[in-house]
Design a protein around this nucleic acid. Structure first.
Length: 281
DNA sequence: AGTATCCTGGAA
DNA sequence: TTCCAGGATACT
């Protein structure tokens, strides 16, 4: 669920809250989350970035923290840069610190950054800032929407593969940042059947899909991400996009666009896929 | 191309 | 009690 808009929201808040803080101690509560804390203790946070679904926290000593929260990872900040103490969403299971708190970054000036992850699929790595683009996962990422994914590049990518279009959209090596929720919505918005082979799309379908991807991602950004599952921003609040999805999660509802058929769910590439059998022929 | 795997909480 | 959620990878 944390896709481009969700990770962008995480990155933006981390940037706002952590800037100027210094890491004074790192408490690792789960062996799976062993990181080289000696390389980050004492460093100041200088800024944050995002590559696809990966958040990057840059430090003053030439190192960076990079994190992929996967499905249930959550960064929660508590400290002086958070005005009006926010009520923690109940999606932060067990609270902070709690049974699912895996790493605690203690900051100066009474700040704390918690990493919670119920299912422990997410990861955190420490790498040299200069080597961030070379980090294996980041290096493999394809161009991403709003940056270098032009319509030309997008159509080149689709032209080259016979795989089903939805699978291609979600393939991070083809383009970075699109996941299941926004892939479903973009395909619906562009009247495209998720099962169609990517090469089978004509020029106007490719162009419509391209615009649709940008449009649904923008909506996701506007509503602060989708908190269908476990997503919360570092202030502990939920996003709102789950209330504005076009087709995702709407199984059984009559399609609002054609009013002819019901939204149907099936599995494609192992993922829940929602579509209108009438609109997306 | 499809399926198991990593995990757990929460819904059915 | 069983199933399901969706990111990424490994394997068939």
């Amino acid at each position: 669920m944390p896709e481009l808009p969700e990770v962008e929201a995480i990155k933006n808040q981390l940037g706002k809250f952590l800037k100027g803080h210094r890491i004074v101690d790192v408490e690792i509560r789960n062996p799976k989350y062993e990181i080289q804390k000696e390389n980050i203790i004492g460093a100041k946070i200088t800024g944050t970035r995002r590559f696809g679904k990966v958040a990057v926290i840059d430090l003053s000593n030439g190192y960076s923290l990079i994190a992929h929260v996967k499905l249930t990872g959550q960064f929660i900040y508590r400290g002086p840069n958070l005005k009006n103490p926010q009520i923690l969403s109940k999606k932060v299971v067990g609270g902070v610190p709690g049974p699912h708190t895996l790493v605690i970054f203690n900051l100066n000036k009474d700040g704390v950054l918690y990493y919670n992850d119920v299912r422990r699929f997410g990861w955190i790595r420490v790498v040299k800032t200069l080597e961030v683009p070379e980090e294996p996962f980041i290096k493999k990422l394809g161009p991403e929407p709003f940056r270098d994914l032009t319509l030309e590049k997008f159509s080149e990518i689709l032209f080259k593969t016979k795989r089903q279009i939805k699978v291609v959209l979600m393939d991070q090596t083809k383009m970075g940042g699109v996941g299941n929720i926004y892939a479903n919505d973009a395909l619906y918005l562009s009247w495209i059947n998720p099962r169609w082979s990517a090469t089978s799309l004509n020029r106007s379908e490719v162009s419509n899909l391209y615009k649709a991807i940008l449009k649904v991602l923008k909506a996701g950004l506007k509503y602060g991400g989708a908190s269908e599952l476990a997503f919360v921003t570092p202030d502990g609040k939920e996003g709102k996009y789950q209330d504005y999805t076009l087709v995702y999660g709407k199984e059984g509802e009559v399609c609002k666009r054609c009013k002819k058929s019901k939204i149907t769910k099936f599995f494609l590439g192992g993922r829940g896929t929602y579509w209108c059998p009438n609109c997306q022929k």
